[in-house]
Design a protein around this nucleic acid. Structure first.
Lengths: 118, 118
DNA sequence: TCCTTTAGGTACTTTTTGGTGCCTACAGCA
DNA sequence: TGCTGTAGGCACCAAAAAGTACCTAAAGGA
């Protein structure tokens, strides 16, 4: 029975770390296959990706959808509970864009183009 | 010149990590002296506290106010730019509270009482 | 004189986190 | 038969983050 000093610690336990917010920001735009996520997050390793996905699944934030076929097909999506985070995640993305603009004047040279950034 | 794959990475560079969100969540309620922060965040070490405060100051998120007196007195507050994060920070705290309730049924036994949690 | 108070610097160690390389399963196809 | 594609497990190693212990300054008071 852990005691938190401030409630944000509980949030960080679930979505803290280097990769989880990135993964979740991709998932707010719809479900993704493992390989898609790997392409969207070029610097993540297979190990880190599956490790973080397992933890998010364990905390009820995402659903893992397994299709019984060969070669395997697995999709990940925000769960209903994970949806309660989507506003926060969007705000985090938006703030990041504004921060890049403030720091560099423009996002063009600093932000990979993709449907996610508009 | 670093390139981000997704804008949330820029946000995490500024407010990511174990301690920064906690520190900032305390500062949204007004400026605090170093020692106050240490008391509010009992598990943080002196080193981590000042290190994180330096970085937040460097990124323009907080102001460091030094009173020229002995023994020293230093206060920290959200800067104007840091204020653009306060809505996000509040949402993170709120989500954490709801998460604790979902997980444990109640916050009473799991969350330290303080002005911050209501 | 020396202790107290407050903020913070620094060298070193431990813990946590992340990365690499290699392994498996198995249907379909040449 | 043997190659391809997809998801992911596992042992081991490297790097980054955090913790520990100890040090400083300087005014005021006992």
């Amino acid at each position: 029975m852990k005691k938190y000093n401030i409630s944000v610690e509980a949030t960080l336990e679930v979505i803290g770390g280097k990769w989880k917010p990135v993964i979740l920001c991709h998932l707010i735009h719809g479900k993704k296959r493992t390989g898609e996520l790997k392409r969207l997050i070029p610097n993540i390793t297979q190990k880190m990706l599956t490790q973080q996905l397992r933890e998010l699944e364990h905390d009820g934030i995402i659903n893992r959808i397994v299709y019984n076929q060969v070669p395997p097909k697995v999709e990940y999506e925000l769960s209903e509970y994970g949806d309660t985070l989507s506003e926060i995640l969007s705000s985090l993305c938006l703030w990041g864009e504004k921060h890049i603009i403030k720091k560099y004047g423009d996002t063009k040279d600093y932000l990979e183009d993709s449907v996610l950034n508009h």
